Simulated scan of single mutants.
Amino acid sequence: MIAIKKGEHDIALGNIIGSNLFNTLAVVGIAALIQPMSLEVAVLSRDWTLMAVLTFALLLMGLGHKQHAGRINRIEGALLLTVFFGYTGYLFSTIL
């Protein structure tokens, strides 16, 4: 938030992508070291694929066009939030 307020959007985007990768690789890896777990292949392929696609989409949105390079507009942000809420809703509906 401080980077955004200072107008350093590239640092903010790097923090988002970096925390996404850290959470996926380190947090899940450490949890698996503490308590080995078995997961279905469908869970890994579905979740990991979606995470990779959304990270790549965020990268493309961050790179943007020549006129708006480094900016993610409201429509793109709304699209990412919609995908997030839709995917979360999908996960809840499959659990229940």
Rank of each mutant, 00 (worst) to 15 (best):
R71E: 02
A78T: 01
I4L: 15
P36H: 03
T88A: 14
G29F: 06
V28D: 02
Y90N: 07
N15A: 15
L81K: 03
T82Q: 03
V43N: 10
F92R: 01
Q35N: 15
D10A: 10
P36T: 02
V43S: 13
D47R: 03
Q35D: 11
M61P: 00
W48P: 00
D10E: 06
V41E: 14
F84Y: 09
L33D: 02
A31E: 09
A12P: 01
L60F: 08
L91A: 05
I95G: 03
L80G: 01
R74F: 01
M51H: 14
G14W: 03
A26M: 12
V28E: 02
V28N: 02
A3K: 00
V83R: 00
A57G: 02
P36M: 03
A52V: 14
L44N: 11
F92M: 04
G64L: 01
R46Q: 10
V41F: 10
L91S: 07
L60Q: 10
L25N: 11
H9G: 04
L60H: 04
M1W: 00
L81P: 00
G86C: 08
I30Q: 09
T88Q: 14
L60M: 14
A57L: 14
T82L: 14
W48M: 15
H68K: 11
K5G: 04
I30C: 07
R71F: 09
L33W: 10
V43R: 12
L63M: 13
Q67N: 15
F92H: 02
F92Q: 01
G86D: 01
V43H: 15
T49V: 15
I72T: 04
E8D: 15
A57E: 02
M51C: 13
G70A: 06
D10G: 04
G70W: 08
P36A: 02
K5Q: 15
